[in-house]
Design a protein around this nucleic acid. Structure first.
Lengths: 229, 229
DNA sequence: AAACGTAAGACGTCTGACGTTTGATGTCCA
DNA sequence: TGGACATCAAACGTCAGACGTCTTACGTTT
């Protein structure tokens, strides 16, 4: 048999994994200020340069946020966020929406098959809050409820990878479109589309669910185009 | 008016941008060995630690690959690859396939509307090569042609973001499934599905194109499940 | 010609020092 | 008492030098 050469991963990569593990495990929730460099050096037994390389790498991916003179904070749990936001800068909103449409529809299709009753009830509750906020004119609450609904559908797809990708893509998009939504001419947010999507999920109809989800995004895209014109 | 504080981005972030710019501009194509640390230090006018932080960050995202004792090479042009491969480690092949299915179908739908004749002809040529390789029993060439076809559809969607995301997701998946494909029991690779997809593109039928693309991925998923059983 | 040994080049890590920024603390004066 | 100011400690940013380890290429030897 052939002997495998002893491959030792770089120490800084080891440190990266350790830190990411602490974030993923929930030991350091989002918003936490992680221990200062001297403390981490002691805990991990590495020199400052090695530690800083690891922190810098995680900060670049968006997992950490380093505030000079203050400390280093956990900024997200997904490593995609950094890359996505940089990608978003280069591409237009329209491209992002087209991708989101694909993910949204797929999540709906899968959710129609896999979502359990509890998840569906939770989605219904989201739509309740969403409609109530709309009637009350509470824009902020409406946006939050809308987001919860869409993210909930992604979760209900039973595909964590899809859900994470969806959050990473749709999140920045949502904040980028805040301007469009507050445009006076914007009246819609037609809640009917979301209701029909939920109905399709309840009936376990993947095709119809996918169609409804796609239609919702298409509406959003149209609003965006209108607001931009 | 309130004066914005002078926010100077960290030098290492500046270095990150400079290096990424050189890669994005094509000055350093994939596979290039970038100048050694001492040379880059001179070019950029920074200390070694600062430079190393930048390189490590880009290596973590998958843009660079550092080979100890040898040098640092350009590994990709997309910053997503690193995050995707790490994500893939945690999630199963099935999840990846479901996401790919969404992107594939959306790319096909968009391509049906936007692809020009030249792009369609190029896709047809890919299928020619693909079929020829299959008949000749040249597995490697078949895989390459198949990949060119799918990537070509993604490009033809006219959405660079979608195309890049597709490549980043499907690339690792493809190599991960190489084992499945070489399984003796695997006979299919039914070329008909791809032909009908191309036909749908030619007829500018987005719905049909999306359906065909989805069916192709579904077949792949089935093969995977079978090979794994 | 093939196998071996050697040396140069490149990245990996450590140590130490100093600069800059931030946030908190304490002080002074109105 | 309360606010404005000065001060200080903590934390990150950057630089410099040194040494270790690994990879590759080259030259030597057999």
């Amino acid at each position: 048999m052939t002997l495998e050469p002893v491959r030792r991963p770089a120490l800084s990569d080891e440190v990266i994994d350790r830190i990411r593990a602490r974030i993923a495990s929930g030991e350091w929730p989002v918003g936490t200020r992680i221990p200062p460099e001297p403390e981490l050096m002691r805990q991990l037994g590495v020199a400052r340069g090695t530690l800083r390389e690891a922190v810098r790498a995680l900060a670049h991916t968006g997992l950490l946020e380093v505030r000079r003179g203050d400390g280093t904070y956990v900024h997200a749990t997904s490593e995609l966020s950094g890359a996505v936001s940089r990608l978003y800068g280069g591409s237009g909103l329209g491209q992002l929406l087209e991708v989101r449409e694909a993910l949204d529809a797929q999540a709906a299709r899968l959710a129609a098959v896999r979502a359990d009753d509890a998840a569906l009830d939770a989605l219904a509750a989201c739509l309740e809050r969403r409609a109530a906020a709309w009637r009350a004119g509470d824009f902020e609450a409406w946006v939050a409820a809308d987001w919860d609904f869409h993210a909930g559908v992604a979760d209900a797809s039973g595909n964590p990878l899809l859900a994470e990708l969806y959050r990473d893509l749709a999140g920045p998009l949502r904040s980028a479109m805040a301007g469009t939504w507050s445009t006076p001419g914007f009246q819609g947010a037609d809640p009917v589309g979301h209701e029909t999507l939920l109905a399709a999920l309840r009936e376990r109809d993947p095709a119809e669910a996918g169609r409804q989800a796609g239609a919702n995004v298409a509406d959003t895209r149209e609003w965006d185009a209108r607001g931009r014109a």
